[in-house]
């Protein structure tokens, strides 16, 4: 365990992991979450879809900041990855489809 953490803590790797998490996982998590919001909102589809899209950009911003804020780089991976998986799983159960 310490070895894996060590790799992730090396400065350059750490930064790459954070950038990767912020962009790739952050975007995927945002998209899944936006789909989930659109699906869960009780309003008319036209309305809920737009609401989800309007909310997605602030959410993406927060996720990017989170992946640079967490004290260890591997946390960016686990936190955003976990968030993505949770949203994706909910979507899979709700809609039967992954984004």
């Amino acid at each position: 365990m310490q070895g894996i953490r060590g790799i992730f803590s090396a400065p350059a790797t750490g930064i790459l992991v954070r950038i990767g998490s912020a962009t790739v996982l952050g975007y995927l998590a945002t998209a899944e979450c936006a789909v989930l919001i659109a699906a869960l909102l009780p309003s008319a589809p036209l309305s809920s879809v737009l609401t989800a899209m309007l909310l997605s950009f602030p959410l993406f911003t927060a996720l990017i900041m989170w992946s640079f804020h967490v004290p260890r780089a591997w946390r960016a991976l686990t936190d955003l990855g976990g968030f993505y998986l949770a949203a994706a799983l909910s979507n899979y159960l709700l809609l039967g489809a992954l984004v």
């Binding site: 879809v49 997605s56 984004v99």
Partner: peptide, 14 residues
């Protein structure tokens, strides 16, 4: 936004 964040409209809108 329909380019950047199209997932909701593609996946949820009937």
């Amino acid at each position: 936004m329909f380019l950047y964040m199209s997932a909701p409209v593609d996946k949820v809108y009937p």
